[in-house]
Amino acid sequence: MTAATSSATSLRAEQDRGRRNAQNKEKWAQGRTYISAAVILIWCLAPAYWMVVTAFREVGFTYDTSILPSHVTLDNFNTAFDTSFGNRFGQALLNSVFIGGVVTLVSLVIGVFAAYALARLNFRFKYMVLGFILGASMFPGVALITPLFQLFTNIGWMGTYQALIIPNISFVLPLTVYTMTSFFREMPWELEESARVDGCTQGQAFRKVIMPLAAPAIFTTAILAFISSWNEFLIASQLSSDATQPVTVAIANFAGAQPNQVPYTAIMAAGTIVTIPLVILVLVFQRKIVAGLTAGAVK
């Protein structure tokens, strides 16, 4: 806005015009932000919404295109749990909860110590350990599956829960360790020092002072670990049996009454049941989860 003229009045006029322009620009920018935000909302939510709407539609109206629910029914949810076509969705839900629970618990109990050491202690080979754990988290599942498939076949573990839990730990544990490590770094460690000045040992300081403070971080990590285990498909699709399969496998293999007709509405109902608890969990703990997701990578 540097006016070429030397006259003060024209400079002021120029400045006024500039301010108006800036205001208009601001409004326009704000408007564009809202339009973009709306596009993001629709892009992210519309497909998920379509799943939920379809889950409530009568089978005869599977391909209905009305945006609001029409021909509403709860039958699809009954069909999802129906075992007469060989589906075991109810059992699979329990399996997923059980597998996810054990994997989360084991990973947290083991990982919390490692995270503490990595966040707080100074020792040799630290980079190596960090690199190893990070490398492990990027490890391709298929590189594990072949030897495990053979091993579990040989020792008769195929289709057992432990055959699903153990490989899952290899995916979840590294995630747990590095998420918790980054949380631990941001904690008020002066309190630990105070506790030690007051005569606590390092172990006591950890248990009595740090653990309660770390609880929210551990809880967030637990959610991330559980979601990761809940979503696992590769290992489960190969090593589970009908009795132990988790929901992801059950949904992928969902069969209908007619072999050549995909029971879309029932699958969407099953998908809704599997997804809703996660979505609620994620929305309630949104801030914490985003912090946990990005902690390991960016901060």
């Binding site: 992801t248 998908g271 599997v274």
Partner: peptide, 8 residues
């Protein structure tokens, strides 16, 4: 979308 399992 992130929370929905890939299989779903």
């Amino acid at each position: 979308p992130w929370a929905i399992p890939t299989a779903v």
